[in-house]
């Protein structure tokens, strides 16, 4: 029970600090919108007519924006921990490193999911995806969008599961930010690949029935979450 309460306080701390400064929130929002605009200008103003091509474009934009916004968020989040030895202060309280890991995953997930909730409709509108969705998808538009947010959230969970442990490793090394990007991107490649495939499937058929990629996305995210939860103690305590 004490461990559960500690996780809650750590999550509240992360979110409170992120919302106190607001710089990360503004940075990742502006960054994501910029990615959407760049793709819109690069592929527009006349986008591909084929709904599948349009869905592929939307999936590329969303997963590119959220992957790099995630890296920025992780960097900023661990910068706050590194600054003035705050993470050592937390370690001294005797918090289980696995609980610290879980709290970071959840707080980053909450933060990025909020971003996805705001940016996804904007991206779909800018890329005019909603205009060309097949009739079967148009009929269940809200449900499809919710499923899309769900897929993005599962992908983000996988991203955070990997990203937090890599950030933890990079905390105690030199070249922190570059190490995070260099090590993290190959590790989250399966998440991005599976997430993008699921997103295309949702925007073209409105469902994931028989979709192999959703299994990959869920299994990869959960396996990494469980193993990193168990291994984080060695990352932080050495």
């Amino acid at each position: 029970m004490k461990g559960f309460r500690q996780i809650i306080w750590l999550i509240r701390k992360d979110l409170a600090l992120q919302f106190r400064t607001k710089d990360t929130l503004i940075l990742i929002f502006v960054f994501s919108i910029l990615v959407v605009l760049i793709f819109s200008f690069a592929f527009g103003p006349i986008f591909p007519d084929d709904p599948e091509d349009r869905a592929k474009l939307a999936a590329s934009v969303l997963w590119t924006a959220f992957s790099f916004a995630g890296i920025i968020t992780l960097n900023r989040s661990f910068d706050l921990e590194r600054a003035n030895g705050a993470i050592q202060g937390v370690r001294l309280t005797g918090v289980d490193p696995s609980n610290f890991y879980l709290s970071k995953v959840i707080s980053t997930l909450v933060f990025l999911t909020m971003l996805e909730l705001i940016v996804t409709p904007i991206a779909l509108q800018f890329l005019e995806v909603l205009d060309v969705l097949p009739a079967i998808v148009q009929e269940r538009l809200l449900l499809t969008l919710l499923k899309l947010i769900g897929v993005l959230a599962i992908g983000t969970l996988g991203f955070c599961a990997v990203g937090v442990i890599v950030s933890g490793i990079s905390t105690s090394t030199h070249g922190k930010e570059s190490l995070l990007s260099v090590v993290l991107l190959p590790l989250i490649f399966p998440v991005i690949m599976a997430g993008a495939k699921c997103s295309v499937s949702l925007l073209t058929t409105g469902g994931l029935e028989g979709n192999f990629w959703i299994s990959i996305l869920v299994v990869y995210s959960l396996v990494f979450l469980a193993s990193a939860y168990l291994l984080f103690e060695f990352v932080i305590e050495g």
Binding site: L17, L80, A83, N84, G85, A86, Q88, G89, R91, L92
Partner: peptide
């Protein structure tokens, strides 16, 4: 053993925005 220790180091070990 950490709950038995009180540490004052060179760094504050805290969140200075708070």
């Amino acid at each position: 053993v950490r709950s038995s220790l009180g540490v004052v180091a060179h760094e504050p070990f805290a969140y200075l925005e708070w």
